[in-house]
Each structure stands twice: as structure tokens, then as C-alpha cells.
Design a protein around this nucleic acid. Structure first.
Length: 154
DNA sequence: TGGCTTTGACCCCGT
DNA sequence: TACGGGGTCAAAGCC
């Protein structure tokens, strides 16, 4: 479940980072967004901004206090297959939600991401900036995903 | 000992 | 030009 969704997130955020045209952008949104949202109904919007090369996922976690969902979302946001290093955080003016800033810890990789959370530690928004200049590090979970004959959504 | 998070300060940019 | 907000830096401490 986590692996599959992480993969979907991956495709949403990285593989289509630079849509060639509006058709491709539409494809991204139509092809993956429904799948993603079917797994994470809390995700209310998926934002794609090809001009700024920035995508974000917005969710309506305020409506959900489900711990399991929290764990899943924490998981996919912090562990999307790449290694991230936190380099800063600051409160958002007019909001009680802190904002955290992460860099990809791969040497010379320019990618950054911004995480916005509410007080419960639930992730409200993820914004990616830039694109990785290296392949995604292989993890045990990735290996399991690749070789898993059947996905159990329990 | 290396890599991480925390956190206060600094810098840049928009108004 | 001054000010405020947001992003980043870097030192310190923790694991």
C-alpha cells in the first residue's frame, strides 16, 4: 500500500516534472490523480505548475484524525525514495502551521521540498522544487514493490 | 565520527 | 527607501 502510493507520488511529482505541453500535463492529471486520490481520499488537490517546475499536494487532513492515514502520509512525504536533509523551518505568518524545508542529500542534487504541517504533525502540503540529477536510490521497499506479484491493499 | 535536526540570524525580494 | 515575510545558512547539539 505504502509502496504503491509512494510510487504513484513519485510518478506524479518527478517523472512528469517537465510536461512537454498541455496535453502531457493533462495526461498527468487525468492518468494519475484519480488513482492517487483513490488511495488517499484526504488529498483534495494535486497542483502542477509546469512553469515554475513546482508541484504540490494539498490535502484536507483537518477533516481526518485517522492515525493510520497520518502514518501513511508521514511515510510517503518523508520517505519518497530519496534521501532528504532538513535545513530549516519557520512558522507561517497568519497560520499556526510550521513549514519545514528539505534538500535532497545526494551530492550536488539541487532538489528541495517544502513541507507544511498542522500542529498534530499531519502534512498539509508538499511542494517540490527542481528535478533530481541522479537515479532514485534503491531501497528494500522498492525492491519488494518490484518483485511483489500481488498488491495487498489491506 | 558522520549525518541528522533544531534554531536563531541573515539575506533577498516584493510591497 | 524602509519594512516585513519567506527562504537559506550555519553553529550547536543529538543520535
Amino acid at each position: 500500500m505504502v509502496n504503491l502510493c509512494t510510487g504513484l507520488l513519485e510518478q506524479l511529482t518527478w517523472n512528469h516534472q517537465k510536461p512537454k505541453d498541455q496535453n502531457e500535463k493533462a495526461f498527468v492529471q487525468s492518468e494519475y490523480a484519480p488513482q492517487f486520490q483513490s488511495f488517499f481520499p484526504e488529498i483534495s488537490t494535486i497542483q502542477t505548475d509546469s512553469n515554475s517546475q513546482t508541484q504540490s499536494l494539498q490535502s484536507g487532513f483537518a477533516a481526518s484524525n485517522n492515525n493510520f492515514n497520518n502514518q501513511l502520509l508521514q511515510k510517503k512525504s518523508y520517505d519518497d525514495g530519496y534521501k532528504w536533509r532538513k535545513y530549516g523551518s519557520r512558522p507561517v505568518k497568519g497560520s499556526e502551521r510550521p513549514r519545514s524545508f528539505y534538500k535532497c542529500s545526494y551530492p550536488s542534487c539541487p532538489v528541495k521540498k517544502r513541507l507544511e504541517m498542522n500542529l498534530d504533525g499531519q502534512i498539509i502540503e508538499i511542494v517540490y522544487k527542481g528535478s533530481h540529477n541522479h537515479p532514485k536510490p534503491q531501497s528494500i521497499e522498492d525492491h519488494n514493490l518490484l518483485h511483489r506479484p500481488q498488491i495487498n491493499y489491506s
